[in-house]
């Protein structure tokens, strides 16, 4: 299963490092990553592969949520299918 991790908030040092650390610890591969900074707002999108992950989806979501709360940004993880459904007309 592929999922999108999105991080939105004020730019700070180490955001990517800290998010990637969690993903690495849980055996999740990052397949693509892109980021933009609009004014001081930081947006990072990661496409991740959860097929070998070592925790449940809800535990991972909670872990990312806690990290977001700690560093003051919003971190969400969502099943990729919802983005495909809305933006890719050829997808079942």
């Amino acid at each position: 299963m592929e999922a999108i991790v999105s991080v939105i908030g004020k730019d700070k040092k180490g955001i990517i490092a800290r998010v990637s650390t969690i993903l690495y610890k849980r055996n999740i591969n990052i397949m693509d990553i892109s980021q933009t900074i609009l004014k001081e707002y930081f947006t990072m999108i990661m496409i991740t592969d959860l097929s070998e992950m070592t925790v449940s989806f809800s535990e991972l979501a909670e872990e990312l949520d806690n990290l977001g709360a700690e560093i003051g940004v919003s971190i969400r993880i969502q099943h990729q299918d919802i983005f495909d459904a809305m933006h890719n007309i050829d997808k079942e």
């Binding site: 999108i4 939105i8 947006t43 999108i45 969400r76 983005f83 809305m86 933006h87």
Partner: peptide
């Protein structure tokens, strides 16, 4: 392939 604009549109 999804692009960043589509992804941010859904999130917004």
């Amino acid at each position: 392939m999804l692009n960043i604009n589509s992804i941010t549109e859904t999130i917004t």
